[in-house]
Amino acid sequence: MTPAEPVDPPNPPLSRSARHRNQIIAMTGLVTVWVLLWGTLSWANVISGLVVAAILIAVFPLPPVTFAGRIHPLGMLRFWRRFLSDLVVASAQIAWLALRPRHVPRSAIIAVPLRVNTDLNLTLTAEALTLVPGSLILEADRTTGTLFVHVIGVNSRDEVEQFRRSVYDLEARIIEAVGSADELRRVRTAGYPNPLAHLEGEPT
């Protein structure tokens, strides 16, 4: 892996053990949903869940998603706490914008090339972005790892740049929750990249 090089292939071919690991993660997830659906944790539920999950994975194989990192409990906790408070702030902001009389909110569409270009990070950041204040994911470019984000309620270019930095902060929180050591290092050393150098997009 080459750090600081944003265009390394996002999906390197998986080794046998990595594929095995992915299947185990998928199985665990499916069994958890199954048990939650039935509502009681019993052997019958777990075993029938395993059977259903095995059939599902055999019939509908999941696209390979590399989960290279490990789960950091502290980072996870920090991420969820911030995420929930962000969700409340976001809802209050939209409610205020909606109820404010005679005001048409202005918005912007910005490109944010992420520092860690893996499918997992791209997906998680995009999902979380939609639920935090002001942002909505419009398009994701997998080859360059760039997210295109619609931002509501911004009034100046400065606020747009400020917002771009908050997207990077969100990415850093996600990497601190589920990233590998290599990804963590990249996020910590890269700082805030300059997006215009990468995209050459003139403001319209």
Partner: peptide
């Protein structure tokens, strides 16, 4: 109502 549209620039490219 858009301050900037970087996706349009990207699609053009």
């Amino acid at each position: 109502l858009l301050l900037t549209d970087e996706l349009a620039a990207h699609l053009d490219r």
